Amino acid sequence: MKEGYVLKSKGKPDGDALRKINRYTRREFTAEEIYTFSVVLCDNEIDRDGERFTEEALQKLAVLFVGKTGIFNHSMQTQNQTARIYDCAVERDGERTTQTEEPYCRLVAQAYLPKSDKNSDLILELDSGIKKEVSVGCAVGKVTCSICGADLKQGGCTHVKGKTYGGKTCCAVLSEPTDAYEWSFVAVPAQREAGVIKNFSTKDAENVEKMLSSADGELTLSAEQAHRILKRLETLEALAECGRMYRGELENSFVKYAGIAQPEIPAKTAARVAAEMDAEDLKCFEKAYRRRAQEVLPLSPQLAPAHRTESSAFNAEYKI
């Protein structure tokens, strides 16, 4: 489960909670000024995506999530900040086991927000259970197959998530968390951008593009997110350079064969036409002109060995 839910409202913090909360405030707040609540962030059960955290991963996330802000719908803008985690711990349920027959564990966070006119509606929604579902955003360093242990970030294996092998359900095991970004109140926890960010993919690029296009003020990215975006851009730039080289060779070939097949067309005109074509059209015309050029002027090298055909009379006197 990479999404969770609000457990219950605690109301006023006790002395120990207030001390932890005031580590994040610019002045000392009193218990009467603060509203606190508990929230389950995630657990070690196989989720609807066929993935699960290890207990060790939850323990690491318990450290990483302390101090992280709560927002709405994973929209990383300052105006969407609503609460902050001041404490986090893994809870084990000795009477419950997961699908993998391990003791059930869940990551439970304690969050706070100041009591104010602005937050009064949110506090009411929390107390009434309207605002309940949450989803987390974090990064993990390792994703392995639960059946064979293959590294799923480096190519994977033949096992299929959700299928059973030898009585065991296959899933992706998430371990070695590297960062915890945020946690969000969401209407539907299964929305596309919810869940663990394991690698920067095309979907992540689409999400970032939406985030950038909808931003009307400050936009906050974590160091990990910025690093992944830069790596993605480097990969795309390398691929683009390969594409530019291929396109250039294709355009040059088109102009050459067009000049042979239809010499009345100036090379500059052919080059201009080639530059305006999309890749599929350019490949089609280049192939057609290559074929016609072969008919007009054989394209085999001048120094290519000639194909010798012996006449039937060659050395006939030695044939029996």
Rank of each mutant, 00 (worst) to 15 (best):
K2D: 15
E3C: 08
V6N: 01
K8M: 07
I21M: 02
Y24K: 02
E28N: 09
T30H: 08
E32D: 11
E33V: 05
E33N: 03
E33S: 05
I34R: 01
Y35D: 07
L41Y: 07
N44D: 02
N44P: 04
R48M: 13
G50L: 01
E51H: 05
T54P: 06
L58N: 00
L61D: 00
V66R: 02
K68H: 04
K68V: 01
I71D: 10
N73T: 07
H74N: 04
S75E: 15
S75V: 12
S75R: 13
S75M: 12
S75C: 12
M76A: 10
Q81L: 13
T82E: 07
Y86L: 03
D87C: 09
A89E: 14
R92Y: 13
G94E: 15
T97F: 11
Q99R: 11
T100L: 11
Y104R: 06
Y104T: 05
R106T: 05
K115R: 14
K118C: 06
D121C: 06
L124I: 08
D127P: 01
K131E: 14
V136W: 07
C138D: 02
A139C: 13
G141E: 05
V143S: 01
T144L: 08
C148A: 01
C148V: 03
C148W: 13
A150Y: 14
L152V: 04
G155I: 00
G155D: 00
H159E: 03
K161G: 06
G167F: 12
C170S: 04
T178N: 11
D179Q: 09
A180F: 15
W183L: 04
S184M: 05
S184Q: 10
F185W: 02
V186P: 03
A190D: 14
Q191C: 10
N199W: 12
D204W: 05
D204K: 03
E206A: 08
V208P: 01
S214K: 12
S222A: 11
A223W: 09
E224R: 09
R228A: 12
L230Y: 15
K231W: 10
R232N: 14
E234F: 06
L236E: 15
E237A: 10
A238S: 09
L239R: 10
A240M: 10
E241H: 07
E241M: 06
E241N: 08
M245A: 12
Y246V: 10
R247P: 11
G248H: 13
L250N: 02
E251W: 02
F254C: 01
A258W: 03
A258I: 03
G259F: 06
A261S: 06
Q262C: 13
Q262R: 14
T269V: 15
A271T: 06
A274V: 05
E276A: 12
L282S: 01
K287S: 13
Y289T: 04
Y289P: 04
R291P: 02
R292L: 12
Q294D: 13
L297G: 05
P298N: 03
L299P: 01
Q302V: 14
L303D: 15
R308E: 14
